[in-house]
Nucleic acid binder design. Structure first.
Lengths: 104, 104
DNA sequence: TCAATATTTCGATAAATCTAGAAATATAGG
DNA sequence: CCTATATTTCTAGATTTATCGAAATATTGA
């Protein structure tokens, strides 16, 4: 993942509503959740939520699958992992080993 | 680190200029770099850079120490580690062990 | 004190973002 | 076909952000 894509993805997660949505989806698991379920759980107006979901999908944080009448949103775990990887590799250089960046 | 602080910090890193600055500072190491050095290295106009640095300092991504005439900017490694920790703990739940989230 | 250096503050503009109601679209079921 | 459900698109206002030149503010050294 290149610099610009990382910045764009972090910017998407850097909004309180969108971060809530992402956290919710992650907890929902690999089956994700429908737009309506997210809306009910988080209490975000439909049009606002739709806007945020579209943004998240655009940068690859989630994907959306149409299933009959509902649209299911699924978190792209790998995308997040790539982001975390970038932050560790590109932004943690210089930290002495064993200080605070040990594998969990 | 709570939800709102995480969102605020990610939003700061979610800007191309600021991400560049942070990466530069991380590579500069624990001694950081002066505002002027950053400016020269990245070619960002002084007032623009000052604005970005102030924002980054406000959320705790960097700290600024005055040293005679120059102001030295130092990356807050721990803050980034906390961010990464949050993303792993709060946003990677549900990923089966051994899939892609193994300790590096 | 004066000039040079380092950085910020001011001010102003352009662009992007957030928000949400209302209307539109799509689809399933009766 | 009609209605209910699910979601998006449209529209528009409010807020925030990004940008950067010019002026202001230290601070050092001569």
């Amino acid at each position: 993942m290149d610099h610009e894509k990382v910045a764009a993805s972090l910017a998407e997660l850097g909004n309180s509503h969108r971060l809530s949505v992402f956290r919710f989806l992650v907890k929902a698991g690999h089956d994700g959740a429908s737009v309506g379920e997210i809306q009910k759980a988080l209490g975000i107006p439909a049009s606002t939520l739709s806007h945020h979901l579209a943004r998240m999908a655009k940068v690859g944080l989630i994907r959306q699958e149409k299933h009959t009448r509902t649209i299911v949103c699924i978190p792209e775990y790998e995308h997040l992992e790539n982001l975390i990887g970038f932050l560790r590799e590109e932004c943690c250089v210089g930290v002495q080993a064993g200080h605070a960046l040990e594998p969990l």
